[in-house]
Design a protein around this nucleic acid. Structure first.
Lengths: 363, 363
DNA sequence: CCGATAGCTGTAAACGTTTCCGGGAGTCTG
DNA sequence: CAGACTCCCGGAAACGTTTACAGCTATCGG
């Protein structure tokens, strides 16, 4: 009796053939039993026994090749150390899990080649769909997004004409909220600690800051603008550089990590927050509430954007013929102690007594 | 001329067959050209052109089925919002990237079914290998780990006999370092804010705390022990409960997130840190250096553990026949302002002037 | 008691790729 | 000019699974 194939493949792991041979049935019957569809009691017993004996575990890759789906969804962000992405991830995860899929996350580190490579690799069928939040976008990148074999949803700004599902916020307006608030509380020498200008959010926030000052008729002083990475250490260093050459009475920071860095730099330089310098962060992450003093911060609705992105993705997976859609989530401002209107004068920098954090006052 | 297969599959995406047919060559030739091995100049030209025209992109799943590898490695942790896992991830990523693979992360949320499911799904060939850091371990779980089809490395404590590559630390000793330090600086009513006792780290730290007190001949007061989640909010709530019933002069916290929560609770209750209550966290994450006052913290060498785990994994992928190995990374204590020996008396709780953070003093 | 039907089974095709192998054409060497 | 060698090509098998299809047996209803 000439067997058609090795029963034990070289790497030793049993396949459905192994099980079928051992149970004395065809691979079709074995497969059916293992998937719980059909089979006589006797067959079921034999196949189950054989599978258990050899320790059979199905090869998901082969199954996916056949079924054209993997049950996986990926999220690619720049820096998973940034709590804003953690919040986004949690929101996405919740939606994705409800569809019975699992979420995988990849941190691209802002290296665009990395991101494109990931897109090329993962999107080529390893996952059923993908959510990407790029901070830099090149043409190469964009085409990789557009003709991805699996559905892709982009979180963040994208060229107006890009034929990709997209959920965004208006970070220019977000910066304006911060500036309005600071001007409204009497600040005039407002500094800005931004991330790299060659990133999409960096550029948008820069434009937003300049526009907001103009709006209020405040002349622009380039000395009050400083740029670093979107990270804690960079934010601190940038703020130190800024303080070395000028003397702001308020600081808008392009994200909360930068704001925390700024806080350190300010306090190390002997400035009091908010009495001497008010600080407003951006993204309104958990970190903002963890700091002393608690940070005012502009929420860009990251969790909401994540949720919506996940929903768009699931819809598109279900029906790939949908036209590209775009959604927008408005920013809002949460005012806390770091830019408090009435600085609690005497008591040292303990925690503000108003502890239940003053929530999301949208201005 | 009867073609053997549809040139355009139903879902419309081109395959290597499409390209081959269009270029007028065999699929073997097409595949070779697309992979850059062999082919006459004319063939190469035709195939390249055909591929470009139809927008061919190879199906990675099919390729993996053939090549038995995916170029992906997964990391499963409980909570990616905990900076300690971010540090671990970064270290792993660096190693993994050097092998030309990409890292995917999954947050299990501590739900053990979730983790087992992920193990079953991903490990069944979707990835070339996997690093898992479980906080709860069941038998079911363990067998899933042991007879995973792809190499698995576990970060964290595991039964002594488990036949799995494993890199761990000694968190009992870590807690002892904290207690030694506090006792050495004159503290006696030392509280302990822990994570859940049904988790591996929670149990180990509890045991470590009790042993350390015993070691110093300090009687155990159960009022000084409180348990919550390994999260910021839980840490804060737990500390509030603890403060409501007793009056510690020091607090050991089972991780940095809890420590930050404790800090908030303490300051809200009017205690000064470190004058009234010294605080020591655990994991020594970036967060510890971000707080005011900066947190003393026990480093459990997460980055180092991640690095080693990744190396073990790569070795095992290269040679699956290796015997199970176990490595251990020692804890160390970084002393900062929150448990400072000589509290800088007068100046309010600004940042400590010694800003280059006093590094990892291993006691 | 016979035909329809239901349930089970095995063969084989399919998913999309890589790769072994044999054959043919061309080039080089002696 | 014959033989060896190189290079390129196409057919076909293989990776491990699911599933359409057809054949078989046993049961049921009339």
């Amino acid at each position: 009796m000439g067997r058609k194939r090795l029963q034990e493949p070289v790497d030793g792991r049993p396949t459905v053939h192994t099980v079928a041979a051992r149970a004395g049935v065809s691979i079709a019957s074995a497969s059916r039993v293992l998937n719980g569809i059909g089979g006589s009691p006797e067959t079921i017993r034999k196949v189950r026994a054989a599978a258990a004996e050899v320790g059979y575990v199905p090869n998901a890759i082969a199954r996916s090749l056949q079924s054209q789906r993997t049950g996986l969804v990926a999220l690619a962000v720049e820096d998973i150390g940034n709590p804003v992405y953690v919040e986004m991830m949690r929101a996405i995860e919740a939606v994705v899990a409800s569809s019975g899929r699992q979420l995988l996350v990849h941190a691209t580190g802002g290296r665009i080649d990395n991101e494109t490579a990931l897109l090329r690799r993962l999107a080529n069928r390893y996952v059923d769909g993908m959510i990407v939040s790029p901070i830099r976008v090149t043409d190469d990148h964009l085409t990789a997004l557009v003709d991805s074999p699996v559905p892709v949803v982009v979180v963040g700004q994208l060229g107006a004409d890009a034929a990709v599902d997209n959920v965004r916020t208006d970070s220019r307006h977000g910066v304006a909220l911060a500036v309005d608030h600071l001007v409204g509380t009497g600040r005039r020498r407002i500094g800005f600690v931004n991330g790299p200008l060659d990133t999409v959010p960096g550029a948008a926030r820069d434009a937003g800051f300049r526009a907001a000052l103009l709006q209020h008729g405040i002349p622009l002083d380039e000395d009050l603008i400083e740029v670093g990475d979107f990270q804690y250490a960079a934010g601190r260093a940038a703020t130190e550089r800024l303080l070395a050459r000028t003397d702001p009475d308020a600081l808008v920071c392009a994200n909360d990590l930068i704001a925390v860095g700024a806080l350190h730099a300010l306090l190390a330089a002997g400035r009091r927050v908010p009495q001497d310098v008010a600080v407003v962060g951006m993204d309104d992450t958990e970190l903002a509430r963890m700091m002393f003093p608690q940070l005012s911060s502009v929420s860009l609705g990251s969790a909401e954007r994540g949720r919506r992105a996940a929903e768009l993705l699931l819809q598109r997976i279900a029906d790939p013929t949908l036209p590209p859609r775009r959604e927008q989530v408005p920013p809002s401002l949460a005012i806390r102690a770091s830019s408090g209107v009435t600085p609690p004068a005497p008591r040292p920098a303990g925690p503000p007594t108003t502890h239940p954090s003053s929530e999301g006052v949208t201005s």
